[in-house]
Every structure is written in structure tokens, then in C-alpha cells.
Design a binder for these strands. Structure first.
Length: 426
RNA sequence: GUGGGCGUAGCUCAGUCGGUAGAGCGCAGGAUUGUGAUUCCUGUGGUCGUGGGUUCAAAUCCCAUCGUCCACCCCA
């Protein structure tokens, strides 16, 4: 048997209604804030990710699906969307002349990691990216928008952590101080931290090893090395969040794995997903556009891991996907008439979800199918009904008497029988 | 990439000391021939993940491999 690629999952019919519902809620919130969808390819030039995410990051060094196409170009399945979005924005002049853009995208991303709970090799993200707005008010909007989404989904228990990374220059100064400090205590560092001392020393700050905690606690603080503008930016953001009544934790150790972030970074975290607790993460990346060859433009955004989010809210979603009615057809004449009748019903009630029985069979077996379909009612067209121009209407989920309805008024009758809201509502 | 747990029917799982497999659910059909879901009866089901090895004999013991889950790591 040929199986799906490891870490890449099929989403089956039992799950897709939940995905669709989740995606619809997200689209709804994004629309409330005036964000517009952008779509870009799943494959990009490898160079794009090397230059944006950073050559020495784990993603670029060992997690990308990179291959040569038939021209010999090095291409990569996108491991994230920000770089793609910026590339598309630059290419189509969406970001020049101080233009303001509020964009979003949704789709699969690819990283070659060892699969575990909440972490897959093909996973799905909703990404939000904004351009041309440098102030903390935009940062606050992004965070409030994500908070609104949790509220709309009935999701509580997420904790908001925020921090400021300052400018690249300020961070470089701090990095030197931090490396100097850690080198003084080299003998206390664990193997991971020694490795990160070379690659990404800031990550040592959020080491999970408890033995590192005292060392980290006494380390120089990034906040003490922030440039004045970043400091003020961050203070204003905190004030805006306070004014909006949003609770947050300032986490001085919150850093990002991708190189392009600057100033504000934030994460929404849960303790209900095991080791992969970050549901949403983002921040500001003011230098990325220029770094990728565009005119300088401030930018900020975030990404949501859809598998993780769905795991948290699945039980609260109420997807509507079961058919309203199942048409039982017994006899040659009924089979021929039934298809036509079903089409007429769909013409008259576009919101009606009607399954027509195919393949014949006894009344008994067809009613079994009707029941298993989840339909609220069975419509019965047999020899008697054909002869009389009627349809039997049996309620499968409630204790009501079976009805005989003239075919001419069936569409109208169904509206009442099924409660109009359930047909009108998608 | 590293470590640990687990792979038996469509699903959830039994399977003793090594003697070539069972249950429940599901699925199909039936219970005086036009009515589901309950009940009863019957039937359908498996290359025991895969490939080697040990043995007269392997679901069972050993090795490898693949998959899966969890953690490290990484990240959304």
C-alpha cells in the first residue's frame, strides 16, 4: 500500500466540516478589520527563504523541502508565508510609495521536522501581514484582532506574552554582552546552550532546562539595551493594550526563531497542547521589505497554526453539514421522477441539503441509509406516491406523525417542516 | 537529528508457557414481502505493519526497517 508521506495528513470528510467552519470564522474576523486576502505559490526560489528567515536558522539549515527543478533552479516548498507575501508585495508594487496594506493568506506550509502532537511536516497557517504602518497602534490592532478571534471561537485560556527585540543594532550590542556573560559561565551551560552560543545565543534565554534558569535570570536584560524609540514604542503598545482591557505578560525571554523580527514580538500560548503550545505568534519586521529588495516599508504580522487552533476549539464548533432530507425512491417510475423532483426542490430552496438515494433497494435498506445520512427527514417516493402525485414525509429525529404532501407544495412545506433557519443558514 | 512507548478485522482492543487467531462496535442480509434508529438471528470480515533470523513450530523470542504517539530539539 502506498501511504501518505510521513507527517503529511489527509483531512477526511469527517473533519472537513470543522476546518471549513474554523476558516469561515477566521475570514469573518479578518473582514471585520478590513484585511484582504492574497494568494501566492506554494513553491518559491530557495534564495527567498535564505535571505528572509536567515541562513543559520534551523528552518533553513535542516527543515526545508528543497529540490532542483528541471532547469536546475533551486526551489523550496514554503516553510512559512511572510517571505512569500513580502516577495509578492514587492513584485507587484503593493508596498511602494508609503502604501498601506492589510493582507492575509491561508494554506499549507512545509517543514521537515519530526512529527509529534501539534507539529506536522505539512501544516496549515493563517498569516496576517501589514505594511506601511510603523506605530504601536497597528501592533495593538493585530493583537486585538487575534484576541477577538479567540473570543468568537469560544476559546479561553490562551495567555498573551509580549516583548520587544528592539532594532537590529540594539540587539547586536546586547548579543555581544550576552555572549560575553555566558562565556564567563561556560562551564554551567548545557550541550544545547553551548551549541546555541554560536548560532542563536538569544534562544538560550528561553531554554527549558531548569538548571539554566538561575544563569539566565542573572544574565544581562535585553530591555536594558533597547534603543529609545523601541522603548517608547513598546511602552505605548502596553498602554494601548491596557486601555483595551487586554491582559498580557511581558516575557523578557521571548525571542523568535526567525531572523527578520524587530521591536514587538508576541505569542499566544496554551498549556493544553503538550510541548507545542504556541497557537499564534507574530511581531514586527520593519527591515524585511528592504532586505528583500523593496523600498523600505515598516511591516508587522502574525501567523496562526490551524491544526493547533482546531485541536483547541473543535468541540465548540458546530459545523452544519448533515443533509436536511434524504429522498427514498422505490420502483422504476419513482427513480425517474425522483431525480427531477429533487432538482425542482433544489431550484426552489437553494439552501436545502438533499441527498437522493441511488442504486435502488428495498424500503428498509433505503431507510437505513436515510437514517445513517443524518438527515432530519426522509422523503418517500414509491409507487403509491407516484400514482397520487404526492411524497411521504417522515421525521427521523423527532416523534411526529408521517405526512403526505402534494409534490407541488413540497418545497414550501419543507421550509416549515425543517424550520426556516436551518435551511437559510448555509 | 536524539530518546522512549505502541503497531492483531473498517474502528477500539483481547490473545496464557511459542502450537498458523478472538470479542465488542461497524458493515451486509433477515425476523409474513411500504419504513430507519431499539431488540433478536445469520453472515462479512485479518499477508498479526514489512523483511530477515532462531525453532519441528512465531502474533508471541531476536535483529532490521517502516509507520504512529510522546518528549528533547524546533516552532505556528
Amino acid at each position: 500500500m502506498i501511504q501518505a508521506v510521513r507527517g503529511m495528513n489527509d483531512i477526511l470528510p469527517g473533519d472537513t466540516p470543522y476546518w471549513q467552519r474554523l476558516e469561515a470564522e477566521i475570514r469573518g474576523v479578518l473582514a471585520q478589520y478590513g484585511y484582504r486576502e492574497i494568494r501566492f505559490p506554494i513553491v518559491e526560489k530557495t534564495e527567498l527563504f535564505k535571505r528572509s528567515i536567515g541562513e543559520v536558522t534551523d528552518i533553513v539549515e535542516k527543515e526545508m523541502y528543497t529540490f532542483e527543478d528541471r532547469n536546475g533552479d533551486s526551489l523550496t516548498l514554503r516553510p512559512e508565508g511572510t517571505a512569500c507575501c513580502v516577495r509578492a508585495g514587492i513584485q507587484h508594487s503593493l508596498l511602494s510609495n508609503q502604501q498601506v496594506q492589510r493582507l492575509w493568506y491561508m494554506g499549507p506550509m512545509f517543514r521537515h521536522e519530526r512529527p509529534q502532537k501539534g507539529r506536522y511536516r505539512q501544516f496549515h497557517q493563517v498569516g496576517v501581514e501589514t505594511f506601511g504602518m510603523s506605530g504601536p497602534d497597528l501592533d495593538a490592532e493585530l493583537i486585538l484582532m487575534s484576541a477577538r478571534l479567540w473570543q468568537r471561537l469560544g476559546l479561553d485560556g490562551l495567555v498573551l506574552q509580549i516583548n520587544s527585540l528592539g532594532t537590529a543594532e540594539a540587539r547586536a550590542v546586547y548579543r555581544e554582552k550576552l555572549v560575553a556573560y555566558l562565556n564567563q559561565h561556560r562551564e554551567q551551560l548545557d550541550a544545547d546552550s553551548l551549541r546555541r552560543l554560536e548560532s542563536n545565543p538569544l534562544r538560550i534565554l528561553d531554554s527549558k532546562n531548569p538548571q539554566m534558569r538561575a544563569l539566565v535570570a542573572a544574565a544581562p536584560k535585553l530591555s536594558e539595551y533597547l534603543d529609545d524609540e523601541s522603548r517608547e514604542h513598546f511602552a505605548t503598545l502596553c498602554g494601548l493594550l491596557d486601555a483595551a482591557g487586554l491582559r498580557y505578560t511581558i516575557n523578557p525571554c521571548l525571542v523568535r526563531g526567525l531572523d527578520y523580527y524587530s521591536r514587538t514580538v508576541f505569542e499566544w500560548v496554551t498549556d493544553r497542547l503538550g510541548a507545542q503550545g504556541t497557537v499564534c505568534a507574530g511581531g514586527r519586521f520593519d527591515v524585511l521589505v528592504e532586505q528583500l529588495g523593496g523600498k523600505p516599508a515598516p511591516a508587522a504580522g502574525f501567523a496562526i497554526g490551524l491544526e493547533r487552533l482546531l485541536a483547541l476549539v473543535r468541540d465548540q464548533l458546530q459545523p452544519q453539514y448533515l443533509p436536511h432530507a434524504y429522498l427514498v425512491l422505490v420502483g422504476q417510475a419513482a427513480q425517474a421522477q425522483g431525480l427531477v423532483l429533487a432538482e425542482r426542490l433544489r431550484d426552489a430552496q437553494p439552501g436545502l441539503r438533499l441527498v437522493t438515494h441511488c442504486g435502488g433497494g428495498s424500503f428498509k435498506s433505503q431507510f437505513k441509509r436515510a437514517d445513517k445520512s443524518g438527515a432530519q427527514v426522509a422523503l418517500v417516493l414509491g409507487e403509491n406516491e407516484v400514482a397520487q402525485g404526492t411524497v411521504g414525509l417522515k421525521y427521523l429525529r423527532e416523534n411526529r406523525e408521517q405526512e403526505i404532501v402534494s409534490q407541488g407544495v413540497l418545497a414550501e412545506h419543507l421550509m416549515g417542516a425543517l424550520t426556516s433557519s436551518s435551511i437559510a443558514g448555509k
